[in-house]
Amino acid sequence: MIRYLYGTDLDRHPDLAAAMFRDRAAQFRDRMGWAVTVDAMGWETDDYDGMDPIYVIVEDAAGGHAASMRFLPTTGPTMLADVFPHLMGGAPIRSPLVWECTRFCLSPGAGAGAARRLLLGAVELGLAMGVTHSVGVFDAPMTRIYRRLGWSPEVLGTQDGISAGLWTLSRRTHDMLCSTAGVEARTSRAWLEASFGEILAQAPLSVRG
């Protein structure tokens, strides 16, 4: 299933959280060679994990970590505003309708199916919360992966091989991902409601233009 958890909810899912932070170390430090901070337990975390973001986490058949990403609203502190402001001319997008997504992570054994479920989770969450777009920072190797998943961002700015991108969270993307990920729309919605209750925007049934 897909879980939607605030940072403060992670202690109720300790194994899942530990696997996510270890898989992040494997991806960002080991495979991509980023200068990230990994602690003695092998967890990769940064300041933004301390800001109670929402994690979208895809579980594998055994309930383990398959894929994850994290969201913060652009009305508050974000990585794009604090760490990479130069990618958008020093003044990144701020809007209640746009959330920042960071730490797009696939566990070493995860395939395209897990990635598609993760993207479905991102769109499901955004549409239910009235969020129309997502912004994030990515580097060149990810471009190919996003393209293969049918989830290419519009590039807003690039410097030193790092880009800021804009993703559209639309009903069309939602339906496409339901179909390619093999998840029924009703099931996807039920996973979200398990975390946030039923009082949400009517989207994806009615999405603002």
């Binding site: 003044a91 701020r94 809007s95 209640p96 309708l97 746009v98 519009e154 559209t168």
Partner: peptide, 17 residues
């Protein structure tokens, strides 16, 4: 040289700010 979709996001962000 951007999409109308992206233009809309820039305008909305400017409106908000």
């Amino acid at each position: 040289r951007i999409s109308e979709n992206t233009l809309r996001v820039y305008i909305e962000s400017a409106r908000f700010k």
